[in-house]
C-alpha cells in the first residue's frame, strides 16, 4: 500500500485526513483510488487526464517526470507539490 499525502487545501475533501493509504501501480491509479474514497481530489489535481500545469508529483522524494504514469512501489510516498523552476 502506498501513502498519498493530501495537500492542505484539499483536506476539506478528505475530512481533514492528511494522508490516504491506497494501492495501485502508478500515481494515476493511486489518485483514482483516493478519489473513490474522497471524490473531488482528482479533479483538483488533474486536467485533461494529465496533472494540471500548476501541479507536480513527488514519488519517494523525487519529482516524478512521468506524472500520473509514474510507477510506484508497495511502500511509495506520494506528494503533490508545486512544479519547480529556477533562474
Amino acid at each position: 500500500m502506498s501513502t498519498v499525502f493530501i495537500p492542505p487545501a484539499l483536506r476539506r475533501l478528505t475530512g481533514g485526513a492528511e494522508r490516504v493509504v491506497v494501492s495501485g501501480a502508478t500515481v494515476g491509479d493511486l489518485l483514482d483510488a483516493v478519489d473513490r474514497l474522497h471524490p473531488g481530489v482528482r479533479d483538483a489535481l488533474v486536467r485533461d487526464d494529465e496533472l494540471a500545469p500548476h501541479v507536480a508529483v513527488s514519488v519517494d522524494d523525487v519529482v516524478a517526470p512521468a506524472g500520473l504514469a509514474e510507477e510506484v512501489t508497495e511502500s511509495s510516498e506520494v506528494h503533490f507539490v508545486p512544479p519547480l523552476g529556477g533562474g
Binding site: S58, D61, V62, E77, H79, V81
Partner: peptide, 15 residues
Amino acid sequence: AAHEGTPMVHGPKHR
C-alpha cells in the same frame, strides 16, 4: 540542521 530524511514543509524529505 536538516539531513537526509528530514521532511520539508511541502512534504517530500531531503535526500
